[in-house]
Every structure is written in structure tokens, then in C-alpha cells.
Simulated scan of single mutants.
Amino acid sequence: MLKDNQPLSILIIEDNLGDFVLLEDYLHEKFETIQIFHEELFSSAISTIKSVKKIDIILLDLILPDFQREILVDKVQKHTGDIPVIILTGYTELVLARKLLSVGVSDFLIKDEINPEILYKSIIYSLERKSYIRGLKKTKKTYQDLFNLSPQPMWLYDISSLHFLDINQAAIVKYGYTFEEFRSMTIKDIRPANEVELLEDSLSQRMLNDSDRFAGFFTHVLKSGENISVEIYSSNIEYDNKLVRLVLANDVTDKLEYLKKIEAQNVKLKNIAWTQSHIVRAPLSRILGIINLLELEAFNSDDLPYLIDQVKQSGNELDKIVQNIVEETKSLNLNTFQNE
């Protein structure tokens, strides 16, 4: 029979020598490289936990001479950190089993039902569960770091009540509310009164479409009373075993003002372009017409003074149009856009 070759260090806390020997045999049957420590009392077991560098699994008898049941489990957990604890008992107590599993015990085994395979599966499951929980904690820490250190305002809110659940530092600085103030508010409280209905419609529409992700432009109100334009990105995430909404808010007030300026300048540029293509053409056409007359062989020289006067008038008219174009171009404030 093939044995599991992963190195393993196990502490068995069991006051019944016969039960310990049986467990020891089962473990040697399934594991190639295993180190087993045995203690009969809670007090001596704690000394072993503190002195041994690494313990992978604890097998704990539920009834010991110095402590028993929930009190024993509670005391052991206070000293074991994230070491998986598997409970061993001679009694089938489903209510107690559920209670202990809910407080972090890895498994609950009945002694009369234990065999090498059951014990092996319980140990492997407990080790995998420990690894998975560590991964979740690492992921949660990564999320917390990204959330708290983000330069953009971010928050979590309850989908049902719309109350703020968590707020990052950037949001606190931007909006001016303290963390405690945010926690007493809903997302409606940072909207202008005349836009609350728009918010409710947006939320209803998202629920109707069963849409997870959302992006859009809204107006928010700072604590100072100032209105800002924000671009919102939001999506559902799981937080404390509950589905909540994560929101990122990007202040685009300056950006929108900048775009308004560009649109206004574009209107002026269109007017200038129209002037160039229409108004300039009239005097220019007259000058070109006069030039054509002068080039004709049948040209009557008596008309020359009149034609010269027409050229002067057209030239002056053209000069005024060019000056107007120059003045309108100056009003565009192109240097301001370059600086921005």
C-alpha cells in the first residue's frame, strides 16, 4: 500500500493510552514521514505547542482530566493559532459537533467509527482547509490594501439599505465626512435633492437588467455643500459573507469644464471657417473679376479709374474681414488650453 510521503508533525492530546496507540498505528499506516507527539493533559499539551517549532495537526480528545468539552476546545484554540484541531470523542453529539465546527474546529470524529482511511481523509481535508483559509486571508488583505491605498475615492454600500459599509481614506478626504459620519449615511445623502429620484431610477434599472457592472456620470455633494461631477464605476463583490456594491468615484468636474471650453471654442472656429469660406469670397471675387477685365484686349482704358477704385474698396473690405478673423482668433485663448 502506498503511503503519503508529505512530512507531517501531529500532536495527539489523549489521556487513554489504548486510544492513543490505535491512532498512532493508523497514522503510521497512511503516512511515510510523520512525527507524533503525545500528551495526556491540556497543561502539558500547551507546553509542547510552545516548545515544538512546527505542529501541523492536533488530534484532541474532548474529555481530559483537567478540562472538557467547550471549555477545553476554547482554551486549546487560544494557544494554537491556525493549527487545525480535529476533535475525538466517544459520544455522538450532533448539537455539540455543530457548535464546535462553527467556532473553527476542523472536524469532529467518533472514536468507534475511526479507521485509517477516515482519519487520513480528515487530516488531508483539514490541511487543505487551512491552506484555503490562508489564501482567503491573503486575498482579503490584498483587497484591503488596494481599497485603502487607492488615490481614488472608493466605498462599499449595502444593496438593500444603501448604507455605507466601508469607506477608503481618499473618499474621506475628498468628501469631507469622517468615517463615522459616512457609516451613518446612505448613498442618497451625497446626492443633490433633485437627483435622488434619478439615483433611484438608476438603481431600479440595474436591478431589472440584473447588471453586475455599471458606469455613469452623476452629481455628488461634498460636506461643504459644493457640487462635483463624478464618473461612477461599480460592481458587486462579496464582503463579510454578503453581496455588497463596490463603487469607485472619479471627480471629473474640471474635465467637464475643460470639455465645455473646447466645445465653445469649436463653435467659434466654425464661425471663422464660415467667414473664410463665404464673406472673404465676395471681395476676392470682385478683385479677380477686375483683373480679368484688365487682361481683355478690348478693355476700355476710360474705365480704369473706376476699376481701380473698385479694387481699393474690395481690398479695404478684405482687410477688415481679415482683421476681424484675427480678433476672433485671439479670443479663442489657445494659450490657456496649452497650459492646461
Rank of each mutant, 00 (worst) to 15 (best):
G81E: 09
V85M: 00
I86V: 15
I86P: 02
I87T: 08
L88V: 07
G90P: 04
G90D: 07
E93H: 12
V95A: 14
A97Y: 01
R98G: 11
R98F: 10
K99T: 06
L101K: 09
S102K: 02
S102R: 06
V103W: 06
V103Y: 07
G104S: 03
G104L: 04
G104N: 06
V105K: 00
V105W: 07
S106K: 03
D107L: 01
D107H: 07
I110Y: 00
K111W: 04
D112R: 12
D112T: 13
E113Q: 12
I114A: 08
P116N: 06
E117S: 08
L119Q: 02
K121C: 03
K121T: 13
I123W: 00
I123F: 00
S126A: 15
L127R: 11
L127W: 01
E128M: 06
K130E: 08
Y132Q: 14
Y132A: 12
I133Q: 11
G135I: 06
L136W: 08
K137W: 08
K138F: 04
K141T: 10
Y143A: 08
Q144F: 06
L146M: 15
F147V: 03
N148I: 10
L149R: 09
Q152I: 15
Q152M: 14
Q152E: 09
Q152F: 12
P153C: 05
P153E: 11
W155I: 00
W155Y: 09
W155S: 05
L156M: 09
Y157P: 05
I159S: 13
S161V: 05
L162M: 11
L162D: 01
D166P: 03
D166E: 12
I167R: 02
Q169P: 01
A170R: 11
A170I: 12
A170N: 03
I172E: 04
I172W: 02
V173G: 03
G176A: 02
G176R: 07
E181W: 05
F182P: 03
R183G: 05
M185A: 10
M185D: 10
M185P: 07
M185G: 05
T186N: 02
T186M: 09
T186D: 02
I187Y: 05
I187P: 04
K188A: 10
I190T: 12
I190M: 02
R191E: 08
N194T: 13
E195F: 06
V196Q: 09
E197N: 14
L199E: 09
E200D: 13
E200T: 08
D201Q: 12
S202G: 03
S202R: 07
L203G: 07
L203I: 15
S204T: 14
M207R: 11
L208T: 14
L208D: 08
N209M: 09
N209F: 07
D210Q: 14
S211P: 02
D212C: 04
D212S: 08
